[in-house]
Design a protein around this nucleic acid. Structure first.
Length: 560
RNA sequence: GCGCCUGUAGCUCAGUGGAUUAGAGCAUUGGUCUUCGGAACCAAGGGUCGGGGGUUCGAAUCCCUCCAGGCGUACCA
């Protein structure tokens, strides 16, 4: 949409130059703006002001208002632009043609679920990796934000023409997972009456008993008939199955599903970690120091410290496998671009990832880390401290059960990623009736019910006849205008790699629709043509609301 | 100490160098309609955009500085 406007303005400027009314000059990039005030048009452009500055630099006279008038005179009369106005210091205000707007209703309905889709991606293969929590227990509430963000981002990228793969990286090779397995063994042994203490630094949470019970149900007491070390080693992969199933179920409550669960251990099993470290050693990026093996990150810009990849005790750090993991993403699997969604507490890792990319000979711009602020849970006016290790945690699943998946997602997605969030459980639970998410969903449900009502009254949607020219009421035109913003909203979300604008857009669209509902009677048996036109508009609005909600990962109910 | 992020209405937050008037939701106050779903709609009050400098036609937005808060600065992840 905006591109069409931009093109028209560029053509008008070129036409003015061809006609000799404007001297030749390098036109700066034309900016098409969305004015805040409606009487400033649907769009506006400051091209005349920019052109004036360029002309003055080139020694010509440059009066912005005069230039804007010349350009305005050459704007093509047909197409989406109905009229233009010159305003202020030289703004060109652009008003869309009413007939053109009316016609968009049918285009939207015809597009159906594809309404709003754009083609920025052109089929480029992107990967979004999100949540990626340690597989050592339920996901704490902070993971909900990561998940909601990553999932919505993936949705938006798909709508923008990218082929997206959603991935969860399972840290099953590190120290934490070993401690987890050892803890599970202890809980398991305890179930059979053995006095087996939970290891120091073990996972003391009660949920471990549940996992142990599952293990006992599936395998009986057979791990007690072997040496402890053997038992722990043998139950490790089994415990991973148990915990991954739990993670999957919990994330499913939030509506999150993955294309692939990528196991860190697989990078050791197939030798890739070793292979890549040798490659880096050969090119001088790896060195021994103080008994440990280091990646010489400080060779690269913006990193001041080297990073240990193999500890002096011979155990690799997570960073060793991370190098191989990203090699796998870009070189083995060939993603064009990768988005990693991380909590801001991992920010120290970001610059080192850029160093990895350079060391691997990859363009660092192909890897983007989206950092999000942390979530502070408030209950009864007090901060709830979370610690998986100590076992006093509030899980993602618990919060979803308490507040509802839709409200959780909407709430977390109204903020930009960088903001820190204070989430008041009492408030969220009690305010759920007044929650904006309900407002948007309600508008969707209301339209669905109106369509049923229309059928009952014998007012059907005449799709074979086009009555769109009857949509002349300001409230009707306002809905169409708002619907046409969706593409720009998706574009914006992709550019910023944040979908939070869509929550505000959804509320906005619902509000605009409700204004129409107030002012315009839709189902009127005495005026079937107008009813049909308005029902068609309702369907378009429904599609817009449903699409927005779907992108956010929120249900669009037909009744509430 | 150094680095990154944040500071906008009573609260939670949007805001893309643009337009005498910086927006939304919640909360507060008042109002509408003999309801195509009242979980609606309309209106009002409420602001030193953390402070101070600068850049330019123009700054919440860019630069500098100070203040306040968060996070990072591991042979943890």
């Amino acid at each position: 949409m905006r591109d069409q406007i931009k093109l028209a303005i560029e053509q008008a400027t070129a036409a003015a130059q061809a006609a000799g009314q404007l001297p030749a000059f390098d036109l700066p990039a034309v900016e098409i703006l969305r004015p805040k005030q409606a009487d400033h048009g649907d769009y506006s452009t400051n091209v005349a002001m920019l052109a004036a500055a360029a002309l003055r630099k080139a020694g010509h006279a440059g009066n912005p208002r005069a230039i804007s008038q010349i350009i305005a005179d050459h704007v093509p009369a047909d197409g989406p632009i109905g009229r233009v106005e010159i305003a202020g210091p030289g703004f060109i205000n652009i008003f869309l043609a009413e007939r053109w707007l009316q016609q968009q209703v049918n285009h939207i309905v015809r597009a159906g679920d594809d309404f709003g889709n754009i083609n920025l991606g052109n089929g480029a293969r992107w990967q979004v990796e999100y949540v990626s929590a340690n597989p050592t227990g339920p996901i704490h509430y902070g993971g909900a934000r990561n998940g909601a963000l990553g999932d919505a981002l993936a949705n938006v990228l798909e709508a923008a023409g990218y082929v997206v793969q959603r991935e969860f990286y399972v840290n099953d090779a590190g120290n934490q997972f070993s401690i987890f397995a050892a803890t599970l063994y202890a809980r398991y042994a305890q179930l059979f009456g053995h006095d087996e203490p939970i290891p120091e630094d073990g996972y003391a949470g009660e949920y471990m008993v549940g996992y142990a019970q599952m293990l006992a149900d599936q395998h009986g007491d057979r791990f007690l008939h072997m040496a402890k070390a053997d038992a722990v080693a043998e139950l490790k992969p089994l415990s991973e199955e148990i915990v991954l199933a739990a993670l999957q179920a919990e994330l499913g409550k939030l509506g999150i599903q993955y294309d692939r669960w990528f196991r860190e251990q697989s990078l050791y099993d197939n030798g890739l970690v070793h292979e890549i470290l040798e490659k880096l050693r050969a090119q001088g990026d790896i060195a021994e120091r103080d008994g440990a093996v280091w990646f010489l990150a400080s060779k690269y810009s913006q990193v001041d410290k080297d990073v240990v990849v193999i500890r002096s005790n011979g155990m690799p750090t997570y960073f060793a496998s991370d190098i191989a993991y990203h090699y796998d993403k870009f070189v083995v699997r060939g993603f064009d671009r990768v988005i990693n969604v991380w909590g801001v507490d991992h920010q120290g890792h970001v610059s080192r990832m850029a160093a990895i990319m350079q060391a691997l000979g990859l363009d660092p711009a192909r890897l983007t880390i989206v950092l999000h602020g942390l979530v502070k849970l408030i209950r009864d006016g007090q901060e709830v401290k979370l610690s998986k290790r100590r076992g006093n945690l509030i899980t993602l699943g618990e919060v979803v059960d308490e507040v509802g998946a839709d409200a959780v997602r909407f709430n977390l997605l109204t903020r930009g990623p960088e903001s820190a969030i204070e989430f008041d459980l009492n408030l969220a639970a009690q305010a759920s009736w007044d929650n904006p998410v309900c407002y948007v969903q309600y508008s969707h449900a209301r339209i669905c019910s109106m369509v049923i009502k229309a059928k009952q009254e014998g007012v059907a949607l005449h799709s074979e006849l086009d009555h769109s020219a009857l949509l002349t009421h300001p409230a009707e035109i306002a809905v169409i205008r708002k619907l046409l913003e969706l593409e720009e909203q998706i574009e914006w979300a992709v550019e910023k790699l944040s979908p939070h604008n869509l929550t505000h857009y959804g509320t906005d669209l619902a509000k605009t629709f409700n204004g129409f509902y107030r002012d315009c009677r839709v189902v009127d048996p005495l005026d079937p043509a107008l009813s049909a036109a308005r029902l068609q508009l309702c369907e378009a609005a429904r599609l817009g609301l449903a699409k927005t909600l779907r992108l956010l990962g929120i249900a669009a109910p037909t009744s509430m």
